[in-house]
């Protein structure tokens, strides 16, 4: 079965990336530490009033996620470029999209682990009470993370091979993530409150639609981007 072979390729690339990461953990520790540091700095800048911090908690967590996450994406391609491994990777038989899917999967695991740490730190530092609707909240975070990782991985496949990649990736990525930021923060805030206006549902649908649209668009576009 062709799709089964493709799936094996995807998994192999993701596993390779994650194994490399697990052996050193340098990248992950740095990115997660940066995420928590951003949270602490935001707490210091916005605090010490408890109520104000609770109000700002959602925004702070998402900003820390975006700023720390953006470092993860360039890294995932840079590892290949530094050792000259991207060219051989492209030489392997099989469709190109599997490379993108593999990188995507690896980054998804990486960023999810980072977000778990950042969210936990945010709950503790900003004194957020966990609501009864927490499974939905986890779903919102997951949808936001997927949107972030899909576009982050796609743009990093270009920016990591350009000059000034540290500047270029946030410039390309952050404006594109405006709907994710608005959707994820508004839905999270609604769920942390009572969601009296029932607005969380609409935002969750928007996030899901966004993820789907850009998942398809980036898979189509990646074939053109990676061609060498």
């Amino acid at each position: 079965m062709a799709w089964r072979d493709d799936w094996r390729r995807v998994r192999a690339i993701a596993r390779k990336d994650l194994t490399t990461e697990l052996r050193t953990k340098a990248g992950f520790n740095g990115v997660a530490a940066l995420g928590v540091t951003i949270l602490i700095l935001l707490g210091l800048a916005l605090g010490p009033d408890g109520a104000a911090l609770r109000n700002a908690a959602v925004g702070a967590v998402w900003l820390a996620t975006l700023f720390a996450g953006v470092l993860a994406f360039n890294r995932s391609f840079q590892v290949e470029l530094e050792s000259g491994a991207l060219e051989p990777l492209l030489q392997y038989p099989g469709p190109r999209w599997t490379i993108f899917a593999g990188k995507l999967l690896g980054n998804l695991v990486f960023v999810t682990a980072m977000v778990a740490i950042v969210v936990a730190a945010g709950v503790v530092l900003f004194g957020v009470g966990i609501p009864a609707t927490w499974p939905t909240l986890v779903g919102v975070i997951a949808l936001g993370v997927v949107g972030l990782v899909v576009l982050g991985t796609f743009y990093a496949s270009m920016s990591s091979r350009s000059r000034a990649r540290e500047v270029l990736l946030p410039m390309l990525l952050f404006p594109m993530l405006v709907p994710v930021l608005l959707g994820a923060t508004t839905a999270s805030k609604a769920l942390l409150g009572a969601d009296l206006m029932h607005e969380a549902g609409a935002w969750i649908r928007l996030l899901a639609a966004y993820d789907l649209v850009f998942l398809i668009a980036t898979f189509v576009a990646f074939e053109h981007v990676i061609e060498s």
Partner: peptide
């Protein structure tokens, strides 16, 4: 690729900011 994907995003951005 960036131009096409950025253009797809424009209506989504508009809708999300409006909401």
């Amino acid at each position: 690729a960036v131009g096409a994907i950025g253009a797809i995003n424009v209506p989504i951005v508009y809708m999300s900011v409006k909401w």
